[in-house]
Amino acid sequence: MPQELNYLKETPSQTAGPYVHIGLAPGAAGFDIYKQELGWDIAGPNAKGERIRVEGVVVDGTGSPVKDVLLEAWQANSEGVFAHPEDSRDVENGFRGWGRVITDFETGEWGFDTVKPGASPARGGTLAAPHINLWVVARGINVGLNTRLYFDDEPEANAKDAVLNLIEWEKRRATLIAKRSERDGKVLYRFDIKIQGEDETVFFDI
C-alpha cells in the first residue's frame, strides 16, 4: 500500500434550495430579523469611479426566468484593488466589493448598484479587463455557478483579457459582455445569464 496523503476532502456542495432568501437575504425577502443585512452596499458612499447599475435575469433551459436565484458579486474598486488583506493597496473607507441580491419573486429580475471596477491584477503580471465576479445559487443548482461580467465599452481591454481568451469559442465570449445603456441619466449595464441551451453563459471552474 502506498502512503496516505492525509488531506481532508472539501465538504460537498448541496443546492441552496428554494428558501435561500430567508437565510442569506431575509430583509430583501421581507423578513425582519437582523439589525443589519449583509451585502446591500457593494461600493459604499466614498468609492471613487463611475456609479453604475447592473441588471439582468437568470434564464433556465426552457427560456423561463429563474425566480428564486441568489447572486453574489465580488469586484475590485475603480483602481482595480480588492478589499482584502492580500491586496497590499488600500480601498476607500466603506468599499467592500462584495454584494448579494435576490431576484424579484414575480419577474425574476435582479439588479445592484456599484461602481465600475478598474483593471485588476491577473496572472503572469498582466491585467484583467474590468470585470465583476458573479456566483449564482438556486434551487436545482447543485454547486454554485461562477461566471464573470465584462463591459461592452471596454473592447480593447476585453480583447486582451487572458480569461476571455481562454474561451476558444469566440462566439461564447459574448455571453460574458454586459450591454451599456442609460436610464434616467444613470448608467445601466444589462447582463442576462442563461444557465442552459442556446447562448448558454460561460461558467468557470475557479
Partner: peptide, 22 residues
C-alpha cells in the same frame, strides 16, 4: 433545466478568485 450543458472553463487562480469579502 438548471444545469449547464457545456463544460465549465477551468481557470487557474488569480486575485479575482484568491481574494474574497472580509
Amino acid at each position: 433545466s438548471r444545469s449547464p450543458q457545456y463544460a465549465l472553463i477551468s481557470l487557474q487562480g488569480s486575485p479575482s478568485e484568491i481574494t474574497g469579502p472580509v
